[in-house]
Simulated scan of single mutants.
Amino acid sequence: MDTPYNVVGSARAIASAHPRLAIVSQCWAALLDWQERAQLRQRLSNLNDHELRDIGIARGEIDYVASHRAVDPRGAIYPT
């Protein structure tokens, strides 16, 4: 039988010792993800229709593209 060991200072040991830290970490990650989506949405909105067409999206797809960064609107799926 294997015995799991927590290394002092490892993410697993810290998360199990401080469940509040895990919640704060998840909230921080969600905030950073939201900020990244907002920046992408703003950058795409600043492009004109010709530039958007060059990269293969329509103006009406900007929100979808910003929210689903791993999914290409043309059907290809990319890892995030």
Rank of each mutant, 00 (worst) to 15 (best):
M1L: 06
D2M: 07
T3V: 11
T3K: 10
T3G: 03
P4A: 13
P4R: 14
Y5E: 11
Y5W: 10
N6K: 14
V7C: 08
V7I: 14
V8S: 06
G9A: 04
G9S: 04
G9M: 04
A11P: 06
A13M: 03
A13C: 02
A13R: 02
I14A: 04
I14M: 04
A15N: 08
S16K: 07
S16Y: 00
A17V: 00
H18D: 13
H18L: 10
P19N: 03
P19M: 04
P19S: 04
R20T: 05
R20K: 06
L21Y: 09
A22S: 10
I23E: 14
I23A: 13
V24F: 10
S25N: 09
S25C: 04
Q26Y: 04
Q26K: 13
Q26A: 14
W28G: 01
W28N: 05
A29C: 01
A29K: 11
A30I: 02
A30K: 09
A30W: 07
A30C: 04
L31K: 12
L31W: 13
L31H: 12
L32N: 08
L32I: 02
D33C: 03
D33A: 15
Q35M: 08
Q35H: 10
E36D: 12
E36G: 10
E36L: 12
E36W: 10
R37N: 05
R37Y: 05
R37L: 02
A38P: 00
A38V: 01
L40C: 07
Q42L: 12
Q42E: 14
Q42A: 15
Q42R: 14
Q42N: 06
R43S: 12
L44F: 11
L44Y: 10
N46E: 15
N46C: 13
L47A: 08
N48R: 02
D49I: 05
D49E: 15
H50A: 15
H50F: 13
H50D: 15
H50E: 15
H50G: 08
E51D: 15
L52Y: 00
L52C: 11
L52R: 01
L52F: 01
L52N: 05
L52S: 07
L52D: 09
R53L: 12
R53N: 14
R53S: 15
D54G: 09
D54M: 15
I55F: 15
I55A: 15
A58Q: 14
A58Y: 00
A58D: 13
A58F: 00
A58V: 01
A58R: 14
R59K: 10
R59L: 03
R59N: 05
G60A: 11
E61R: 07
I62F: 11
D63V: 06
D63G: 07
D63R: 09
D63L: 08
D63P: 05
D63I: 03
D63S: 12
Y64V: 01
Y64A: 06
Y64N: 03
Y64Q: 05
Y64F: 08
V65T: 03
V65R: 09
V65N: 00
A66Q: 02
A66K: 01
A66V: 02
A66L: 03
A66N: 02
S67E: 13
S67R: 14
H68V: 00
H68A: 01
R69D: 04
R69P: 01
A70T: 03
V71L: 14
V71W: 11
V71N: 10
V71P: 01
D72W: 00
D72S: 06
P73T: 05
R74K: 13
G75E: 07
G75T: 07
A76D: 06
A76I: 02
I77F: 09
Y78P: 01
P79K: 07
T80S: 13
